[in-house]
Amino acid sequence: MRLIFAFLGVLLFAQVACAQKFGYVDTEFITSKMPEYAKVQKQIEQNTATWLAEVEKKKGELEKLEKEYKLEELLLTEDLKQQRLAAIQAKNKEAKAFENQVFGTEGELFKLKQAAYKSILDQISKAIEKVVRAKRLDFIFDKANDGLVLLYTNPVHDYSDYVLEELGLELDPNLVEKTKKEVVQEPKSPKKN
């Protein structure tokens, strides 16, 4: 009896899995074929090289101050030593602040990349959505990323509302209505001959 239930369970699971259509794309491959992406990459590399040169210049100035101080340390009065050490610390803070401003988590390089890639990612996203609708797919994965990244999911398979309900949280009725309208208004794909 258990064997029959197990077989029926596997059969049912196979039918459900077959009913959903999956697909994947390789965004690295797609972007490598886009001339806009190559142009953006070149611009980012040029800006990065300029910023790296400025960072190296600031580090060079700091090293020069430190060498001068070490050479003259024995000849300097206590007041001059303190002035030179303060100048070295100020130059060190300036160099670190500039490096953080440019290469930090919210730095200029991050902002430049975010702005530059936005239009390219929007183009790819729109193209993926058109393909999804034409091929009637439910899920699209990105093969280029290390982790599991869903680029598109059919809202029909979103069970977030049920999880919120189980947690005792209220749903936003406006959001529920908007989602239902989006699902209903999806354009139908042309029938295959």
Score class of each variant (00 low, 15 high):
50 T>F: 07
91 K>Y: 01
108 E>F: 00
3 L>R: 11
103 F>M: 00
21 K>A: 15
167 L>A: 15
84 R>S: 08
4 I>C: 05
152 Y>R: 08
83 Q>Y: 03
2 R>H: 08
134 A>H: 10
39 K>T: 10
108 E>S: 08
173 P>F: 07
82 Q>L: 10
147 G>P: 02
131 V>C: 04
63 E>V: 07
11 L>C: 15
15 Q>A: 15
186 E>S: 07
12 L>I: 14
174 N>L: 14
91 K>Q: 15
162 Y>N: 11
133 R>W: 06
46 Q>H: 07
21 K>Q: 11
177 E>K: 12
91 K>D: 02
46 Q>D: 11
138 D>L: 04
75 L>G: 12
177 E>M: 08
92 N>E: 13
43 Q>H: 09
164 L>A: 08
104 G>I: 02
162 Y>E: 13
140 I>D: 02
85 L>W: 00
120 I>S: 03
63 E>G: 04
112 L>D: 00
185 Q>H: 11
118 K>A: 13
107 G>D: 00
5 F>E: 09
150 L>G: 03
46 Q>T: 13
132 V>P: 01
161 D>C: 02
135 K>D: 14
86 A>C: 04
31 T>S: 10
69 Y>Q: 01
98 F>R: 01
96 K>L: 10
82 Q>I: 11
117 Y>W: 09
5 F>Q: 08
64 K>Q: 13
55 V>K: 03
174 N>W: 03
31 T>M: 14
150 L>T: 13
8 L>Y: 06
78 E>D: 14
100 N>W: 00
50 T>P: 00
182 E>T: 11
142 D>Y: 04
98 F>H: 03
139 F>A: 01
21 K>Y: 06
68 E>A: 10
157 H>T: 15
87 A>H: 01
97 A>S: 06
122 D>M: 05
93 K>F: 02
181 K>E: 09
190 P>F: 13
34 M>Q: 08
72 E>M: 10
95 A>H: 00
138 D>T: 06
183 V>S: 05
84 R>Q: 12
193 N>Q: 13
4 I>S: 09
139 F>G: 02
156 V>H: 10
42 K>I: 03
88 I>M: 10
111 K>H: 01
175 L>Q: 12
128 I>M: 05
167 L>Y: 09
109 L>V: 11
20 Q>F: 08
142 D>L: 04
167 L>C: 04
120 I>R: 01
117 Y>F: 14
79 D>M: 06
54 E>K: 13
127 A>Q: 10
27 T>H: 03
130 K>L: 09
65 L>V: 02
73 E>W: 00
192 K>G: 08
183 V>I: 15
111 K>P: 02
26 D>L: 05
12 L>S: 15
144 A>H: 01
183 V>D: 02
35 P>A: 05
175 L>G: 08
151 L>C: 03
146 D>C: 00
174 N>S: 12
185 Q>N: 15
57 K>P: 01
81 K>T: 02
47 N>G: 10
115 A>I: 04
32 S>H: 14
146 D>G: 12
19 A>E: 10
5 F>G: 07
107 G>V: 03
182 E>M: 14
114 Q>Y: 03
17 A>V: 07
187 P>C: 01
149 V>L: 15
58 K>D: 00
119 S>F: 02
186 E>V: 13
141 F>Q: 05
182 E>W: 15
51 W>R: 04
182 E>R: 11
92 N>P: 01
172 D>C: 02
41 Q>I: 11
79 D>G: 03
42 K>V: 04
122 D>T: 12
159 Y>F: 11
193 N>I: 12
